[in-house]
Amino acid sequence: MSIQHFRVALIPFFAAFCLPVFAHPETLVKVKDAEDQLGARVGYIELDLNSGKILESFRPEERFPMMSTFKVLLCGAVLSRVDAGQEQLGRRIHYSQNDLVEYSPVTEKHLTDGMTVRELCSAAITMSDNTAANLLLTTIGGPKELTAFLHNMGDHVTRLDRWEPELNEAIPNDERDTTMPAAMATTLRKLLTGELLTLASRQQLIDWMEADKVAGPLLRSALPAGWFIADKSGAGERGSRGIIAALGPDGKPSRIVVIYTTGSQATMDERNRQIAEIGASLIKHW
């Protein structure tokens, strides 16, 4: 067993022997301040990774656009098919120029040779490549099948209805392509620590998230040296922004954090800054 596999296998073990965790309302004060600064709703939840206990939450059962955070769930569904012998990570998928959609920095470079399922998941999570996500959605049967996968996990809230990039439209009061912070946090925890996926697939999923290259201005910008984070960000229309993450000190994750916002007129930089400040408060009061 590799060191990384050992780390993920012992996530519940280490967490069980940690000192009790206590909620700190100071972080919620910052979440509410972010709402004021952005002029928009902000949803927040913080779960203990081992027990699933909610440590703090704000608007945990209000719907927010998922945006690209759905790509972690998508690759979880792909990995479940791999575990069941219905898919192979090494299978190569070929596609054409007509398949390319807006923001496809990886797939646009491989029109000639195609990409493997493993490479597509890596591109979808680490670079948020939209064509990679659409190609992977095709392998599982489309958005409705991802929703069905989530329902089978016990998540009857999260739903995907459309493809990239239309799913980022974020129309107010439109339930399409949305989740709730509580539902997303619980589902992410199941994917990373539950028995739904094999140990190898859980490790692969967290490795992809740990290698995320496009979430630097968010929670990662607030992390002290030595902290662990595996995350996936999302951005959408109407001032929408979000991030889902597993993080913790001492090089291992111990909490799940989900943050979503929508309806702001603020710039992307300002949305990023507010999420980073929430992260800084979380870490300060850990």
Rank of each mutant, 00 (worst) to 15 (best):
Y95R: 01
N134H: 04
W227E: 01
S122C: 08
K109N: 12
F228V: 07
M184D: 00
I93W: 03
V117Y: 03
A230P: 00
F13A: 14
W286I: 05
F70L: 05
A9V: 09
F22Y: 10
A276Q: 12
A235D: 02
D231I: 04
I45Y: 09
R63A: 07
I283W: 07
A225S: 13
P25T: 11
V257Q: 01
E195Y: 07
W286C: 01
T116S: 10
L89E: 06
I229R: 01
T27A: 06
P25H: 13
E108Y: 08
D250A: 13
V72F: 03
I244H: 01
R81E: 07
L73T: 09
T139H: 09
G141T: 05
L89Y: 07
M153V: 11
E102L: 10
N50T: 14
S57H: 12
S233H: 01
G236A: 09
D177C: 03
A245M: 04
L167W: 01
I243E: 03
T262M: 09
W227Y: 07
P249V: 06
E169G: 14
A266G: 13
P253R: 09
L160F: 10
F14R: 01
I229F: 03
Q204C: 14
R92C: 07
M180S: 15
I140W: 03
K144C: 12
I243R: 00
R118P: 04
N173M: 15
K213N: 11
I11V: 12
D174K: 03
D83M: 03
A215C: 04
M1P: 00
F64Q: 02
N168T: 07
G141E: 06
D113L: 08
N130P: 01
W163V: 13
A185R: 00
R91N: 08
G76T: 07
F6N: 10
A225H: 14
H110K: 12
I229W: 02
G114S: 05
Y95P: 04
G114V: 03
A230C: 14
L89T: 06
F58N: 15
G236Y: 01
I140L: 10
L137R: 01
K53I: 14
S2W: 09
A9G: 11
G242T: 02
F70N: 05
G226L: 05
P181V: 07
I54K: 07
P172N: 10
R176G: 06
L146M: 13
N152E: 15
D36W: 15
H110N: 08
T138L: 10
M180G: 11
Y95L: 08
A280I: 14
M153W: 15
E277W: 06
M115L: 13
K213M: 14
A148G: 14
F14H: 04
T186M: 15
A23R: 05
H5E: 09
L137E: 04
K213H: 12
R118V: 10
L223A: 10
G263Q: 07
M66A: 07
A182L: 15
L218R: 02
I171F: 13
L19I: 15
A148C: 13
W286R: 02
E102R: 11
T138P: 06
L10I: 11
P143C: 06
I54M: 11
V214Q: 07
C121A: 08
T139C: 09
F22T: 06
S264M: 06
A9T: 15
G43T: 01
G142F: 01
M184C: 06
M66I: 11
H110T: 06
P25E: 12
E210L: 08
G85F: 06
K232S: 00
L79Q: 03
K252T: 11
S57V: 10
K32E: 10
T267Q: 13
E46N: 10
R189A: 13
G154C: 06
K213D: 03
S104L: 01
A280K: 15
A246L: 14
V29E: 14
P143W: 02
G85M: 08
F13Y: 11
A15N: 06
V21Y: 05
C18K: 02
T126A: 10
V42W: 09
S221I: 11
V117R: 01
I45E: 04
D177K: 01
F149W: 14
I125Q: 02
Q203W: 07
D113P: 07
Q265I: 13
T112L: 15
G236K: 01
A23P: 07
G263V: 04
E270A: 12
T138E: 15
A40D: 05
R189V: 09
R241F: 02
E61S: 12
Q4L: 09
A40H: 04
H285L: 09
V8T: 15
N272H: 04
L73H: 07
I243L: 11
P172D: 13
N168E: 04
T27Y: 02
L197Y: 05
L196H: 15
G226T: 12
K284P: 03
D113K: 12
A185S: 08
V117D: 00
G142Q: 04
L10M: 12
N173D: 15
F22M: 10
R176P: 04
E270S: 12
P181C: 08
G216V: 07
F149A: 08
A280G: 12
A215M: 03
Q86R: 12
P60G: 15
R159G: 04
F228R: 07
I275T: 03
P65Y: 03
R118I: 10
M180T: 15
K252W: 09
H110G: 08
G90R: 10
P105A: 06
H110F: 11
E61V: 12
E210R: 10
M1K: 01
T112C: 10
A133S: 10
R202W: 03
P25A: 06
A170Y: 12
A77Y: 12
M115R: 05
T116F: 04
L28T: 09
R7V: 08
